[in-house]
């Protein structure tokens, strides 16, 4: 009751009433309108089953993955203002960002740690969806969309790894991309490469790198993939993913 008293005292004070002319009436109709009348909130249905609200059912992991995606988008835009994807400037811009830009280091840290957190969260989300059997009919297709999102999450993270243009980034990306060299038929070291006539500067890895070795061309390529291509594709698949959660209905135990 004390809480109600405090609430009344606040909402009946002159200051409050000078700001808010009328109250929010907590009626079922208003509760539904709050969701259906709001462009962001109406991603949700206006009513959900009780278990779906509980943390111990969803672990909140899909939502956290999405939150991490949003955080990387916002911090990423900030970083883009100061970063030039060319071999002569990229590394210097990282230093500049760390030492001279207001909140530069914080933004960079948040961008990087959120990206890592997104990878972990998406795995946990997949694990949750698996454990609740939520991929079973009628949600088979949304699981497939989810697997595509998982791959996109890894690709987003991987393409960003190159951008600081330091020793860590070029060698991690070199090692991570060496596999493309060995792609059957399409890589110049893969089985069957003779049949396709591929060579070190004309094969799957060269296509990824924009040349035979990692170089400035690779930096530009990864930058565009990281900042434009994969975010766009991921957003499209996220739209499908969320739409299908609504269409297929949220999973739950039989009533």
């Amino acid at each position: 009751m004390a809480w109600e008293d405090i609430k009344r005292q606040i909402t009946e004070s002159d200051v409050w009433q000078s700001m808010f002319r009328h109250g929010y009436e907590d009626t079922p109709r208003n509760r539904i309108l709050m969701v259906s009348g709001n462009v962001w909130l109406h991603l949700h249905p206006s009513k959900v089953r009780r278990h779906a609200v509980r943390m111990r059912f969803t672990w909140c992991m899909g939502g956290i993955t999405f939150l991490m995606f949003l955080v990387t988008t916002v911090t990423g835009v900030y970083l883009m203002f100061y970063y030039r994807p060319t071999a002569e400037y990229a590394y210097a811009d990282m230093k500049y960002l760390e030492f001279d830009m207001p909140f530069g280091m914080l933004m960079r840290n948040m961008h990087r740690w959120a990206a890592h957190a997104m990878v972990i969260a998406v795995w946990l989300h997949m694990f949750r969806v698996f454990l609740t059997g939520s991929y079973k009919p009628p949600r088979e297709f949304n699981w497939v969309v989810g697997v595509i999102l998982l791959v996109l999450t890894l690709l987003l993270s991987f393409t960003g790894y190159l951008l600081p243009w330091d020793q860590l980034s070029i060698w991690a990306v070199t090692v991570g991309s060496n596999m493309a060299r060995a792609t059957p038929f399409l890589g110049h070291e893969g089985p069957g490469h003779e049949l396709m006539g591929v060579n070190p500067i004309y094969d799957a890895r060269a296509f990824l790198f924009g040349g035979g070795e990692i170089g400035p061309h690779t930096l530009l390529r990864f930058y565009i993939l990281h900042c434009i291509f994969f975010p766009l594709i991921t957003s499209l698949f996220l739209a499908v993913h969320f739409w299908r959660i609504r269409r297929d209905g949220f999973s739950g135990p039989p009533l």
């Binding site: 959900v48 089953r49 739950g252 009533l255």
Partner: peptide, 19 residues
């Protein structure tokens, strides 16, 4: 082929519970 559209008594309002 059951969807989560059983009897309404199990449901709560998204606003405020889920939001």
């Amino acid at each position: 082929i059951r969807k989560a559209v059983g009897p309404g008594d199990d449901k709560v309002h998204t606003w405020p519970h889920l939001v």
